[in-house]
Nucleic acid binder design. Sequence first.
RNA 1: GCCCUCAUCGUCUAGCGGUCCAGGACGCCGCCCUUUCAAGGCGGUAGCACGGGUUCGAACCCCGUUGGGGGCACCA
Length: 493
Amino acid sequence: MSSAVRTRFCPSPTGMVHVGLMRTALFNWAHARHSGGSFVFRIEDTDAARDSEESYRHLLDCLRWLGLEWDEGPEVGGPHGPYRQSERFDVYRDVAARLLEAGHAYESFSTNDEVDARRLAAGQDPKLGYDNADRFLTDAQKAAFRDEGRRPVLRLRMPDEDLVWTDLVRGEIRFAAGSVPDFVLVRGNGAPLYPFVNPVDDALMRITDVLRGEDLLPSTPRQLALYAALTDIGIAQGTPRFGHLPYVTGEGSKKLSKRDPQSNLDVYRDRGFLPEGFANYLALLGWSIAEDRDIFSMAEMVEAFDVTRVSANPARFDLKKAEAINATHLRALPVEEFTARVVPYLAGAGLVADPPTPEQSAVLEAIAPMAQERMVVLSEAVGLLGFLFVDEVTIDPAAAEKQLAGEPAVEVLDAATAALGELAEWSTPAIEQALKDALVEGLGRKPRQAFGPVRVAVSGRTVSPPLYESMELLGRERTLARLAAARGVATAG
RNA sequence: GCCCUCAUCGUCUAGCGGUCCAGGACGCCGCCCUUUCAAGGCGGUAGCACGGGUUCGAACCCCGUUGGGGGCACCA
């Protein structure tokens, strides 16, 4: 208990990266950092059929994107490597042999059919699982099975006592003695199984605190037994603390499945969620920093994090709230930082060069403060600011229908064109004055009706950065051309 | 079926026996500001699943019911 906290994150590199998985990583990371401990990253790639190198790389990338740096693990190394299970088979073989030799594990020859048959014969439900029947096979019996060509699995002998632990998030949890059958450590073909390798590596890597999803809670009693055995043979130094985190659920209240598009971290990254914003939201799924506060930085989270105060009930992923949290972080960014983060999105859409040209930079610098408070995620910059970086805008059909239909729009556009065409000085104040004079005073239009068509003409949308500033940045030529183009649309409509 | 687990506004949560006719946030609804949309400001809507205990006193403790979730592999 007195030694430094060591937590770990140990995903399998299969498929996409799940937001619930990242929440687990975040909590492990925060728990370690809070206490000045270490965060270990291990890859559980023992399933060659499902694991992929691409997925492995993506996992590292996602962890780094979120800002969860690890102290030991892939590409970083450490004293307990290797950190990929595919490179540790010798270790498992050795530990399995020692468990067998010490009598904590034994060879089991029963097939599933035989176990079921025995359960049925005894009037029991086959669902009870393995019946521990092979615990005391004699050497002669084993030899006989081998002669039949059977390959034994290796099973752990479960202790005949209640298995209890104090869960970091749930308090005391108890499984009655005898309720968990002897389970398989190593397959007949020699392949070590997850319930075996996971605790072995945790023990060898000296993990002190295991924070994982609640789906693993029912397998904890088996691990407790394994730990006792590993400790007995000198592999482990006691049992770690366990904390079972609640699920992150989707619609309904089912656990967010891997198939649910909402569970893929990539969709949030691609949309331009800020890592600090997304991490903030993830942290809120089961944890809170204070009674009246929910916006905080990673550093503040580390400072305040306490696993013991993590809620035990499942949390639904709420996109709306995630966006709101992100928007707050987005607005809090220094403008230059905001601009720098927006550039890749604009460049990706072919709107600016990467890095932007001096002219593009000037426009960006001018518009950034006004764009920043209108956005929720970075990718919105493409739609919001695109009109500033192209020669002609494509007018959004819905916006056109709303603002450019009919005679009033034509009048407004004509008046605006006349007023702007003879403007002596092309500046925001001058444009504002001229438009107000021409449209509000001149035509007697309500501001709302006066500027709507102009905005759509200039930006192509009903939502844009402030109008006069936008026009100034656009320049007189492009502005007038757009008013003319919009007038064509208005007339046609 | 068996085992485990969870239960406060629509959602995420604060609450760890009295200071709670339950606080914050998102959402939603108003109002203000306003050249659109936002942002910002102000206000409002809405909740302790149910039943028994324990206690002077229960959202908080105990038991049960109901409801939700998960697990019962030679997958991870």
